[in-house]
Computed example of a mutant assay.
Amino acid sequence: MKAHIERYTFYKLLLHTMQAAIKEATVHMGTNAGKQLLEDIRSARHEVSVLSPNLNTEQMRLLLDLHQQNIKVTLLTTLCQNMIGNLEDYDFRVELIRQYKRKDSEAEQKKESLKDLIKFLAIALVSFIVASVYTYFYYYTYALICFIGLFLIAALVIYAAATELSRTSIYRYTYKTTFPLKIFIDPQNQKIRNSSKHFIHAKAFVIDQKIAYLGSADFTCSSLNSNYESIIRIEDQAAIQELLSEINRLYKSSSEDMDFVDIEEWGRMIYDEPKE
């Protein structure tokens, strides 16, 4: 009993000390430490920034719902272990990445030119065949050789033109994320080629540039609702702006020590690109 009281007194003292050290801050510790964080995120009116190495499907859908409500969402997360874009057997890439296609007028003109060339050479082939048969019956040996040579050249050119035609698409495909998103790769991830040396382990949340959260909790149901976590709620504007600057710096980072997912490469993995 005495040990329990001493432990309780220690945690109470720790909370008071942390609150006194941080201006305009509230400390949440325990198995339901993320309750206020979730309430503030759901009540966001303008923007939400999330830095969390781990997510689950429910939280990902919450961010997508916020985006649908015209709330600006920025997400920085990590592909851990052997994930390639799945959360709880759900592939979230199709909702986070959109395919866009535009018609390439130069490619369209090139394709039409190749079609016209093939038509012309096809007529030429027929003419060479007729001429070869004619010269064969009249024993014009040199002429026969010439027509056969022209036939072979025309056939090769048709083959090359047809190959190029099949490779030429009149559409160009690009890929964009549904909202600002950067996915770093865990150095231990063996399913995605990467050169990461560092694992992003920090957790931070900023709501409407007015409230920020820092602590041990990931953006997962277990962390926010059942794990014993510590979370600090900050309203100090100077600290929030500094935190946003760091999140923005990390979002724009191109450090070789922290590899991240190539969205264009992911897009080509999950969407077809018809030649047309």
Rank of each mutant, 00 (worst) to 15 (best):
M1A: 15
K2M: 14
K2P: 12
K2G: 15
H4S: 11
H4F: 13
I5Q: 11
I5N: 11
E6Y: 14
R7S: 11
K12W: 09
L13G: 09
T17N: 09
A20C: 11
A20P: 03
I22R: 08
K23G: 07
T26F: 12
T31L: 07
N32M: 08
A33W: 01
A33M: 02
A33E: 02
A33N: 02
G34N: 00
K35T: 15
Q36D: 13
L37S: 04
R42K: 15
A44H: 08
R45K: 15
H46M: 10
E47Y: 07
L51A: 06
S52C: 04
N54C: 07
E58R: 11
E58L: 08
M60I: 06
R61H: 15
L63R: 05
L64S: 12
D65F: 10
H67G: 07
H67A: 10
V73W: 01
T74W: 05
L75S: 05
R93D: 02
E95R: 05
E95H: 13
E95P: 04
L96Q: 02
I97H: 01
I97T: 02
Y100C: 03
R102I: 13
Q109W: 09
K110R: 14
D116Q: 15
D116F: 12
L117G: 10
I118E: 10
F120Y: 12
L121V: 06
A124V: 12
V126E: 14
F128I: 04
I129Q: 12
I129N: 09
T135S: 14
T135D: 14
Y136R: 09
F137R: 08
Y138P: 04
Y139T: 10
L144R: 10
I145N: 08
F147S: 07
L150C: 15
F151V: 00
I153D: 06
A154R: 03
L156C: 15
Y159E: 12
A161Q: 10
A161L: 10
T163V: 13
L165R: 12
T168C: 06
I170K: 09
Y173W: 02
Y173V: 00
K176T: 08
T177V: 01
L181P: 01
K182H: 03
I183T: 03
F184C: 05
P187C: 02
N189P: 01
N189W: 00
Q190K: 12
K197P: 03
H198S: 10
I200W: 03
H201P: 04
H201I: 04
I207D: 01
I207E: 01
I207G: 00
I207C: 02
Q209D: 14
A217D: 01
F219E: 00
T220F: 04
T220V: 03
S222Q: 14
L224C: 01
N225W: 06
S226T: 14
N227Q: 09
S230F: 14
I232P: 04
R233I: 05
Q241K: 07
E246G: 06
L250N: 07
S253P: 09
S253F: 05
S255D: 15
E256H: 11
E256T: 14
E256D: 13
D257S: 13
D259A: 02
F260E: 00
F260W: 03
V261L: 14
D262F: 00
I263L: 03
E264W: 01
E264G: 05
W266N: 08
R268L: 06
D272N: 06
K275C: 07
E276L: 05
E276H: 06
